[in-house]
Design a protein around this nucleic acid. Sequence first.
DNA 1: CTGACATCCTGACGGC
DNA 2: TGCCGTCAGGATGTCA
Length: 310
Amino acid sequence: MPELPEVETVANGVDARVRGQRIVDVWTSGKPQTFKSPESAIVEVLTGARIERVRRVGKTIVMDLGREPNEVKTQIPPGNDSKKNKGKRRDGEDDSSAPSGAQFLVHLGMTGRLLVSRPEVPWPPHTHAVLSLNSGPNETAGRELRFVDPRRFGRLSVVMPSRDEPGGYTGPGAEPTTISAEDFAKLFKGRKLAIKAALLNQSILHGVGNIYADESLFRAGIRPRRQAGRLTRAELARLHAALQQVLAHAIELGGSSVSDYVDADGVRGFFQLEHMVYGRAGELCKTCAAPLRKIVVGGRTTVYCPQCQR
DNA sequence: CTGACATCCTGACGGC
DNA sequence: TGCCGTCAGGATGTCA
C-alpha cells in the first residue's frame, strides 16, 4: 500500500520520465468513483498541457501543468460540463479554460499504480486513465502515462490555483519529513485519540500510513494505544526522530513492496525487508524475541512488541 | 467537535 | 483440485 516513501518513489520516477512532455491525448475509463473531479474537467485540463514537474504532497502525486502562451485558451466543448456548474464548486470545476498553474492530482489509494509505458505494451487490466505523451518530434515520443488500479481506492482530480491555495495543492496536514520536533509535538497536544490513530490521521500529519505508523512506534518504544496527548516530551522526541529516520530510510530503499506496490518502472522496493513489526504478527521481536502482538487501533490492524513498547 | 465505525473494491490466501 | 470465506486498508461519510 503506497504511503509516503512509495508515493515519493513513484513521483520521482515518473518525474524523471515525463517532465517537460506534452499531453497530446487523454483517455479515461468512466468508472465514476475513480474520478474526484468530473472526467470532462480532467480531460479538458490535461489535453494539450505540458507536464512541468511531478512531485509528492502527502500521499498524493502532484503534476504541475503548464501551457504554451499562444494557446492558453483551449477548446471547451459546449455543454460538456454545463450540468455540473450549479451548486457548490468542487475541485476542477472552475469554468475558465485551463490556465497555467493547474495541477493534476493522483492518489494511488491501496492498489493504484502510475506506469510509464510504450504504447505497444498492452494495457493492464483495470486501467482507468491513459495520457498519451509527446515531448517533441525527435525525442522519446509517444510514451504513455497509465493509471492502473484494481481495487479502485485511488482517485484522480484536477485543481486550479485559488485564493486559498495560490501556490497550489498543499495537502491536508503537516509534512512529516520536514516538520521540526517542536511543531511535531504540538500536533498531538490535548488529543485523546490513540497515538497510532493520530499518526494515521491525514489532516494532522499527511503521508503516514499503517506500515510507517507501526514501524516508527516500534522504533520509538511506544505502545500504539497510548493517548496522543499524554505522551511525554521525551517520547514525542523519540517518535519524531524515529518517524523521520524510518521514512528517510524507506525512501532510500525505494519503498516497501507489500502486496502489489511497484514504482513507475514496475520495480519493487526493498524496505519490507527492514520491517520490525508490520506484517509480523505472531513472529518474534527482532530485538527481544518476544512474540509480537496483533490488535486493532483506529480500525487498522496494528502489530507491536509488548516487551519493547510501553 | 471528537472519535468510532461502516463502506467501497478486488485479489490473495487459507481451509476444507 | 477447486471452491468459498475472510482479509487487507485510505479516505469519506455517518453516527453517537
